[in-house]
Every structure is written in structure tokens, then in C-alpha cells.
Amino acid sequence: MKEKDVIVLNSHGVGQYAFTDHMPKWGETLSVKNWYVAEDGGKGSNVSVALGRLGINTAYIGKVGNDPWGDLGEKWMGGAGVDTTYMYRTDEVSTGTGLILIGPDGQNTVIDGDSSAVALTEREVIDAIEAMKGSKYFVTGFEVPMKLALIGAKHAKSLGMCTALNPSPLPEEAMGELDYIDYLFINEVEGRYICDEIENEEIDSLQLAREVQEKYKVANVVMTLGEKGSMALCGERTWGVEPVKVDKVVNTAGAGDGFMAATIANLVWGKELKEAMEWANKYAALSVQYEGTIPAYRPLSEVNEFIESLK
């Protein structure tokens, strides 16, 4: 198999949506509205589809069931031009699903079910990466078991690939030093949990990024800040990227995955990280205007038209 611009190792699942005016408390029976199955993928299929539609030569590694949800993964990623040779199919597990609760202002909480990636093996991951030696970037996250994601990243790094990690959902066990990760993508809430600063309103995003960088020994920390934009800490250099305001926010569920994919795409195109993040912020601003994650990842021509309209 030929080398790729980007290899993605993460989970595929199918999202279900429900709308609520508040988050439930323990013991509460919550009534929601408009509960439906949407064109919404797991973090692996989200990032893969976004990259594919931007014209990036992308391959996906994961495991899904022999069921309709797995078929949707093949359809969505294949339609975006993603190579799914190493999307392993099995009868051992069912493809995972998740519930996304949407609030009145478009904010969201994601409840992840069991991932079919629990059946993925270390041998399958290594074999897939070996088959694509010479690839440029390796992107992973923790919707596959943390051990597999980190083994994959270490192996990809040993083969000369640039590595990116989104450690979401955050694991209960320690991740250890991540000096083989080139880009650590987190959001501000994740940064607070990592640094045990969830209640400390005085600590700012730069302080959080520095604590994360020191804890995990990563070169580059990229942090999304929701409506405040994003920021990065690269060695000793730091900068912020202003948010892009849009008139109507429909759904933010896939914005983080889209931002990560768009940043990686720009790095593949040879841009510096700051310029890549600026473009990715605009990409994410376009994505939040669509229902579901898969429809939110627009083709490159449409993204460029939107960016031109902002000038």
C-alpha cells in the first residue's frame, strides 16, 4: 500500500441527537425533544471525512461491526475519498453509538457508548501502519483504547511520521510522558481536568498550556477555547487566534474534530502552525452552521468561498 498524507487511528460510531433545555441531575428523568439518528460519526470517522473532503490523501485504521452502523462508516469515509482498507470488520462487537445532548444555544455534551474499537488488536494497528510506511502524519485519540492509540503513535513516530493526539475522552489512568507526540490537541475544559484546575477561574489558558506541556513533555500544545477562539504553546512561543463570529450556530458537536483536521490539513500543505490554526478557526466557524458532523465538513471549494466572504 502506498504512503498517505495522513493516517487516522480512532473510533467510528454513529451519533444520536436529542435537544434539551438543561442538563440532568442524578435521579432526574429528563424529557428531550427531537431524538434522532444523524449523520454523525465518531472522532476517527469525523477527522477522516473532514480531511478527505479537503483533498488530503487519508487512510483510516479502526474496527467496526458487521452491521448497518459499520456500513455507514464505509459509506461516509469512502465517499470522502478515504482509504478504508484497514477499517477491520468483525462479528465480535457491534459498532458503537453515542448520544449528543444539544442545549438551547447550540452547546453540547457527548455521551459515548462502548466503542467497537475495544476489539482492535495491537497487531492489526502495527500491520496497518507498517503497510503505509512513508506517510507524513499520524493522528489518533482515545475513542480507541489508550494503550493502542499510544502504541500506534510511538510506532508511527519511529517510522518518521509527525504525530498528533487528541486525548479525548480523557483516560482515568496516567498517560505518562508523551514526548513522541508532536501536537497535543485539547480543549480548555480538558486542560483544566488534566491540571486539576477545574474550579480555579484565575488560571488562564496560557498557564494551563504550560502545565500540560511540562506534565507530558510535548513540544506543541494546541488548545481550543470555544467562543474565545484557540491558542498554542510551541516550545517557548505562544499565540492566540481570534474566533470567527457567525450569525447562527446550529451545532458545535463536530467543531473540535473539524478544527483538528483542518489544522493538520494545513500542515500537510506546508503552512506554519499559526497560519494553519487561523484557517482552521474559519473552517470550524463554517462547520457549526450545519446539523450533524458529517454534513458539517464541507469540501475545500466551499470552505475557500466562505473564507473569502469573511474578508
Rank of each mutant, 00 (worst) to 15 (best):
V221Q: 04
L184C: 09
E201Q: 14
P167D: 10
N187H: 01
T163P: 10
E173F: 04
K154H: 09
K228Q: 07
I194S: 04
G152Q: 02
P145V: 13
L150P: 01
V144W: 04
A232T: 06
P167G: 05
E236G: 05
I151P: 01
D182Y: 02
D196V: 12
K154C: 14
M231W: 02
L206I: 11
L165V: 15
E188G: 14
L148M: 02
C162E: 02
Y183H: 10
L178T: 07
D179K: 10
L233T: 13
E172H: 04
N166R: 01
L148D: 01
K154A: 11
L159G: 01
L208W: 06
S158F: 04
Y183Q: 01
T224K: 01
E201M: 15
E190A: 07
N220C: 12
S168E: 01
L170T: 09
V222L: 13
N166G: 03
E177I: 12
G235L: 10
E177K: 14
I151K: 00
V212L: 02
R192P: 12
N166L: 05
K217Q: 10
S168T: 07
L165S: 07
D179Y: 15
L148Q: 00
Y183S: 12
M146R: 01
H155K: 12
S230W: 00
H155P: 06
V144R: 00
H155T: 02
A232N: 02
E173H: 05
S205A: 15
W239L: 08
L225N: 03
N200E: 08
S158E: 01
G226Q: 10
M231H: 04
L225A: 08
Q213H: 13
P169Q: 12
V212S: 04
Y180F: 15
G152D: 02
M175E: 06
N200C: 05
E214W: 05
S230T: 08
N200A: 07
C195L: 13
L150T: 11
C195D: 09
A219Q: 13
M223Y: 05
V218T: 07
S158V: 08
I194T: 11
S168V: 14
V218C: 02
A149V: 05
C162R: 04
L148G: 04
V222A: 05
I151T: 06
A219D: 07
R237K: 15
L233M: 03
K154W: 13
D204A: 08
G229D: 07
Y183E: 11
L178E: 00
A153K: 00
M161S: 07
I151L: 09
V218R: 00
K215C: 13
L233C: 08
D179E: 09
N187R: 01
I181Q: 03
L150F: 02
K228A: 15
K147C: 10
L178M: 07
D204S: 06
L178N: 03
R210I: 15
